[in-house]
């Protein structure tokens, strides 16, 4: 089994703090996900995700505030609308849309954060390395 390389784009206010909460609770999870902090999940453009896959990432995560809890009121509404379209775009480009994880993690949800990371890492691990698939 390979060690997947995963990039997580996390919003600064909820999910990034959720990751901090997991840390403060010393919850253990696999080290594969490297976090890139963005102000809001709405900042994550489809191109940024595609660019990350082009760099050879086996998986990409976009984590934001729960709908209704967005620090910027409605920034994550855009994420929620944009990401399903992005999945189609990935499929069109021959990238398994399952390699993209969209989820909502609040600042209090340290346990959920660790679980989401754990599950996505395992899921990606069970898939062949991205570079092999893409040639």
């Amino acid at each position: 089994m390979h060690e997947p390389k995963i990039i997580g784009f996390l919003c600064n206010w909820c999910s990034y703090r959720g990751a901090d909460t997991a840390g403060m609770a010393r919850l253990k999870y696999p080290p594969n996900v490297k976090i890139v902090r963005v102000p809001c999940s709405g900042r994550v453009s489809p191109e940024l995700v595609l660019r990350t896959f082009r760099e050879g990432a086996d998986g990409v995560m976009v984590l934001g505030c729960h709908i209704g809890d967005c620090h910027y009121a409605t920034g994550n509404h855009r994420t929620a609308k944009r990401m399903p379209v992005l999945r189609k775009l990935l499929e069109y480009n021959g990238i398994d849309p399952e390699r993209l994880c969209i989820d909502w993690v609040s600042a209090a949800e340290g346990e959920k954060f660790a679980t989401v990371i754990q599950q996505f890492t395992e899921k990606i691990k069970a898939m062949p390395p991205f570079v092999e698939v893409m040639g």
């Binding site: 900042r43 409605t74 920034g75």
Partner: peptide, 30 residues
């Protein structure tokens, strides 16, 4: 928040301190 950046189709808006170049550079570094 940068939601406009994620939305702009012609890539004409940049969010200072969270530009595409900066985020891509961070991702590539990792």
């Amino acid at each position: 928040c940068g939601t406009c950046v994620g939305t702009c189709l012609s890539k004409s808006i940049k969010l200072r301190h969270f530009t595409d170049e900066q985020l891509v550079a961070e991702m590539i570094g990792a």
